[in-house]
Write a protein that binds this DNA or RNA. Structure first.
Lengths: 232, 232
DNA sequence: ACCTGAACACCGTTCAAGT
DNA sequence: ACCTGAACACCGTTCAAGT
């Protein structure tokens, strides 16, 4: 997994050379590259690679996704994979965006608040469907086509729910942080027992991860409506 | 980083054999072991190992923390480190709890709600101080002595703020998820640009990570008070 | 008893040599 | 032009041999 860039380095989006993995320009240049490309003779496609990688992660975990192991799974050599992806990190970025593509956008007929709730639940749903992939979520900025689609819908929903941009933007971002936080720590070992055993030790009931999510989402949205009542 | 245990496996806390890394019994058995231990002649102590590992992560990132490299840093061989920690994962667990030990608990004179806010901000503060360590947070349940100290204080604050246990418990857990979510995604590459470039593209102002955190915390706590008004 | 050099079984990635 | 075997420079971890 790649490290964060050095603070103070020039903005990655504007520099002339190769763009950093996963930033906006990286995605657009990748699209150009894919269009220019001739079909490969060996039957290997990036789609097949991504699906096989995801299946491997789902079944055996992120650690099992090694370039060599994936090549085995595809009956080829590890070097051959490097004709389709330039690094293991790039592969992870592609798999993550593929999973975000499973998000079903809310029906346009729903109210703004209902759309906000729908999208949060969908994000949680698709991520929980692939719990062992989650540590890869932080490997790159979430700017692939599916992530962008979700973010545009999500922010749009907040605006449609009647919040001014100066409220909708931090509200949207805070809600994403909350959803990712619950998913991350509820499915990883961090949340598995976490503070909870303690709580059991104190004789309190332990709510399920889903209950904590519902509770937090509802409380946050109620607080939002309470702090910023919709204009009449 | 270790993988989550197989779902459906017997509870890790109650089985007879060696407890899984980071669970409660693991911590207590570790304490027993440390008490029985004679001082080492080579000057290597677990404290020195933890501090050196944390410094290495802070300066060069989590990837640079290899057993071999850490051994170099301590002028010894990698095999020698295995007399103090049984794996790289165990080392990460110890470093994470060490960092949580930097949390300053709220002054007892503060109100319940002020204590809740204080602890959330402290958790955020100590984690942000070591951004490159964060991916290690999910490697194990957070049940070390410092994590337990923080969790007990955190839940206690919620109760002291006047919420019934059935509210305080999910509220506490949801808030932790939110704090960890903001820290995680604001400091990792995932949040670095995230949905935010998009937003810039749409002409909206981009709030800072700190602003999103403050906004979310305040909104959540307001929602909590609104949904569950304190008895008189 | 304690310590550790050297080995084992892996990694991600590159590149010269093949077709 | 496309593909890939074999190598390079690493890993985490173990264990027999040393003191």
């Amino acid at each position: 997994m790649s490290e964060a860039s050095v603070p103070g380095a020039p903005s990655l989006e504007t520099v002339g050379g190769d763009p950093e993995l996963g930033v906006q320009r990286w995605w657009s240049e990748r699209e150009q590259r894919l269009l220019r490309r001739r079909p490969r003779v060996d039957g290997l496609t990036i789609e097949r690679i991504i699906l096989t990688a995801l299946a491997l992660v789902d079944v055996e975990g992120l650690e099992a996704l090694t370039v060599r192991r994936l090549a085995d799974e595809l009956s080829t050599g590890s070097a051959s994979l490097y004709r389709h992806v330039s690094s293991r990190d790039e592969l992870l970025v592609l798999v993550v965006d593929h999973v975000l593509g499973e998000i079903v956008l809310p029906d346009v007929g729903l109210s703004g608040r209902a759309k906000v709730e729908w999208l949060s639940k969908e994000l949680r749903r698709v991520l929980i469907a692939h719990p062992r992939l989650l540590p890869a979520l932080t490997a790159s900025p979430l700017l692939g086509p599916s992530a962008v689609r979700g973010a545009q819908n999500g922010l749009g929903n907040m605006l449609e729910a009647g919040f001014a941009p100066a409220v909708a933007v931090p509200a949207y971002l805070a809600m994403i942080d909350f959803v990712l936080g619950t998913v991350y720590f509820d499915t990883s070992r961090a949340g598995q027992n976490s503070s909870t055993l303690l709580i059991n030790g104190d004789g309190f009931d332990r709510p399920s991860a889903a209950e904590v999510f519902e509770f937090g989402l509802r409380t946050f949205l109620d607080g939002l409506t309470h702090r910023f009542p919709p204009p009449q």
